[in-house]
Design a protein around this nucleic acid. Structure first.
Lengths: 127, 127
DNA sequence: AAAGCATATTCCGCTTGCGGAATATGAAAA
DNA sequence: TTTTCATATTCCGCAAGCGGAATATGCTTT
C-alpha cells in the first residue's frame, strides 16, 4: 500500500507543479523559484519532501542543487504510470501552462553532468 | 487545480480499496463491511467523503444504500484516467487481492435498479 | 579567516483528516 | 406507534502537513 504514499505526494499543488516542470528536464532550485514564482522555503521544503520519498533525486553542483526525476530505469511502475497520467490530466490547466511558459522563457536545462548544456548551472541561461 | 482534490481522495488506503471494489460493480454498505473487513463508521465516513467530492454516487433502496462509480459519461477525464491508472497499479497488491477474493466469495452485485440481479439488495447473494 | 551566495532546517501556529464511541436519522417490520 | 435494521453524523483526541520567519549549513570567493 505504498501507493498511498505516492498519492499523498501528489496531493499538493506545489508538488504537482514541481513534478510537471521536471518532466521537461532537470532544474536547480533557483530556477524553480522563478518558474513557480514561489518563495524559497516553500520550494525547498516540497523538494525535500519529494526527495525523501524517492520521487525526485538531487545532486549538488557547487552552490547549486539540481533536482531531477529518478532515471527511468529506477522508477517504480507506479511512479511511471502516475507521472504519465499526470501529464495527461494537466494539459489544459492554466497554472501549469504559466509555469511552462516561464520555463521556456528561461530556456535553460540544468544538468548535473559537467560539460552538458547548462552544466555550469550557476545557472547558465542558454542564449 | 481540482486535480489535487482527486489525489487527496486517493490518498487513503480505505478509499483506494473502496474504489477498487466499485470497479467491479455497485455495492451496498453492508457488503463493504464484509469485503473490506472494516467497521461501519469507517466505511460510512469514507463513502461520505467520496460522495461529497463526486467520486462515487449513492442511491437508497429501502434500508440499504448502494454506492457506485459515477456513470462513465459523467466521469471527468481526470477521474477516468486515474481510475484506470489505479487499476493498473494495484494488480499485484495483496490487500486488494484479499478484498477481491472476499467480493467474489460473496458473489453479489447490488443494483439500484429494481428487477436486476441483486436488486433486492437486502442484499441478495446470488446462488 | 571572513564574507557571500544558494539551499536546507527549525520553530510555530494553524488546518485537515483519521479512527472510534456514542448517538441520530430514516425506512421497514411488528 | 413502537421496534428493528442499515446507515449517517457528531464529538472527541490525535497526528500529519502546510506556510512563513528566522536561522543554520555548505560551498565558494576574496
Amino acid at each position: 500500500m505504498e501507493l498511498v504514499q505516492l498519492y499523498r505526494a501528489f496531493a499538493d499543488p506545489t508538488r504537482l507543479r514541481i513534478l510537471r516542470v521536471l518532466q521537461e528536464g532537470p532544474l536547480c532550485v533557483c530556477h524553480f523559484q522563478t518558474v513557480l514564482a514561489e518563495p524559497q522555503v516553500k520550494i525547498s521544503k516540497h523538494l525535500g519532501y519529494l526527495r525523501e520519498r524517492g520521487l525526485v533525486v538531487a545532486s549538488r553542483r557547487g552552490n547549486w542543487v539540481i533536482y531531477a526525476l529518478p532515471p527511468e530505469k529506477s522508477r517504480t511502475a507506479e511512479l511511471a504510470a502516475n507521472l504519465a497520467c499526470l501529464a495527461e490530466c494537466v494539459k489544459t490547466d492554466a497554472v501549469f501552462k504559466r509555469d511552462r511558459a516561464r520555463l521556456k522563457k528561461l530556456d535553460v536545462t540544468c544538468s548535473p553532468v559537467a560539460g552538458e548544456r547548462g552544466a555550469a548551472c550557476g545557472c547558465a541561461v542558454a542564449g
